[in-house]
């Protein structure tokens, strides 16, 4: 802004006519509060505010994709599909499948997982043992 660098020994007073300073973007991340950079990157760049108004299947789908993104892509897609088959109500599975059919924007990994979901049934070996105890 105004060509000043942080090393400028004599910084001028902030120019309040500068729209960035007069009307700062309070929702932008700051240096003190960085956007999380740990963990695997995903294509989901929806911000924290927008997320609160996202449909649940998309929000939850992206959470699952982020949790699986550390696997190689094929394995990650399988894990996502298995999770959706085991734990999602058929209505929610149908909703997210329809989004893929309509070509709605979503994380590539999530899309790959949903495509796999379409192809197969639940693998009996995944549910053979009790999940608890």
């Amino acid at each position: 802004m105004n060509g000043q660098s942080v090393d400028d020994p004599n910084p001028a007073a902030p120019d309040l006519a500068d729209p960035d300073l007069a009307d700062p973007d309070l929702d932008a991340p700051t240096d003190a509060d960085p956007v999380p950079d740990q963990g695997p990157p995903t294509g989901d760049d929806v911000d924290a505010q927008e997320r609160q108004h996202q449909p649940a299947d998309l929000r939850m789908g992206h959470d699952i994709a982020r949790a699986m993104a550390h696997h190689p892509p094929e394995r990650a897609a399988e894990e996502i599909a298995t999770h959706l088959r085991k734990f999602w109500d058929p209505r929610m599975r149908a909703t997210i499948l329809a989004r893929v059919d309509r070509g709605e924007p979503m994380d590539d990994l999530l899309r790959a997982g949903v495509e796999l979901l379409r192809e197969g049934e639940i693998d009996p070996s995944e549910v053979r043992k009790p999940s608890g105890g």
Binding site: P36, G39, R51, P130
Partner: peptide, 24 residues
Amino acid sequence: VRGRGRLVPTVFVPTTETTNRRFP
């Protein structure tokens, strides 16, 4: 119960609920 205990890599994926200037 499942036989052998499976060690699962637990990659830290931070929450998307981050602080900013409006909600510090």
